[in-house]
Design a protein around this nucleic acid. Structure first.
Lengths: 194, 194
DNA sequence: CAAATCATGTCACGGTGTGACACGTTTGGT
DNA sequence: ACCAAACGTGTCACACCGTGACATGATTTG
């Protein structure tokens, strides 16, 4: 097996690239499936065979994030609790994601295009679900606790990302690790000062 | 002005009721605009004149929640910090919402129909945006802090609601205030124990 | 080389959401 | 009471979304 899978992978990349280009230029809602298909040179039907919607085509790689985060529970340092561990993993993951070229492009879109939120939110819901289920499955936390941990971790991720994106649009070059740690720090202060 | 506004209000209620009935019976995705229009006895076009989508028709009353929460910042007790204040307001609001008949119906839908999440999430995004903007506007918090507060408050609301909804489906009759306070308590433990 | 599998295009279809226009009703001023 | 403006509704038309079914040609497998 070679030609088919290679072609398929190339096509996925091509569709994703075309979608990102077009959305940056025209906006999310103004970009139709027809536009994407025309740019790649395929039929609309085929676009749907690769991605369930333009939103999916825009953010194909977030599953790895979920997997890494869910899988990270095994390596618990037990020094700062489950929440602290997960946030630390998030911080590193965040720094890693920033290096990926599409991350910055999508970040800018996130701020400038309100319609983008629905794309991001769907991924985050999946993360919360997977993470909380995993936490419950390990038997260390009960339902409410697991949900809270997953929600707070996701909230931190989102806040850091949004702050990063805002800086990006403003032309400020921020250090992702620093930014994420500031987020964690402020999060802690919320509970220890109040 | 009387007849028109009354008719309009009645129509809104009618559409909302029909939507809720149908979604409970058939599920969200299986319920079309045509179904709703037929049940109310109006054209599809008119349904869209009252609600932008069936999702909107399903949850029309959440704006008041946002208003109350955003407006509550003025009455700050300063004993437990902004976050504590907001969570307390949420607790009372939650108990109040539960008494509304639609709240329980929607809660059950939320657990049984995964497609419902997108309805809820949109409202929550609006809440986060309004709340964080308001917090920043008051000048007490900077951007990241305000975002975090809004996200955490929303996360607590969602966790409490989801727990309540699960109990509801399981036939467990839970006290909303108690449940929300357990959520707040566990939230605090996450940071003071870890 | 032949059969099975796969990717793609084409066509058709139901559903969503919006704009434009016509017609009847309500409203407010005279 | 009458009339014009504003409003609500239905109808029609349209673009877009997403899916199922089928035909066709390329790839893989034996």
């Amino acid at each position: 097996m070679g030609i088919r899978e290679e072609r398929r992978a190339r096509m996925r990349r091509e569709i994703q690239g075309a979608t990102l280009d077009l959305v940056e230029k025209q906006g999310l809602d103004a970009t139709t499936i027809g536009d994407i298909a025309a740019r790649v040179g395929i039929s609309e039907r085929t676009v749907f065979r690769y991605y369930a919607s333009k939103e999916h085509a825009l953010m194909p790689g977030q599953q790895s994030l979920i997997d890494t985060l869910v899988g990270s529970e095994s390596a618990h340092s037990t020094s700062s609790g489950i929440l602290g561990d997960l946030l630390a993993v998030c911080r590193d993951l965040f720094a890693q994601e920033v290096e990926q070229s599409d991350f910055r492009r999508i970040s800018r879109l996130m701020v400038q295009e309100p319609a983008m939120t629905r794309v991001v939110v769907r991924q985050e819901r999946k993360l919360v679900e997977a993470l909380s289920a995993s936490l419950v499955g390990r038997g260390q936390l009960e339902s409410i606790q697991a949900l809270l941990v997953a929600e707070v971790v996701t909230a931190a991720w989102r806040v850091a990302w949004q702050s990063f994106a805002r800086n990006e649009v403003d032309g400020v070059d921020s250090d992702p690790v620093e930014l994420f740690e500031k987020t964690i720090c402020e999060l802690g202060k919320l509970f220890h000062e109040g």
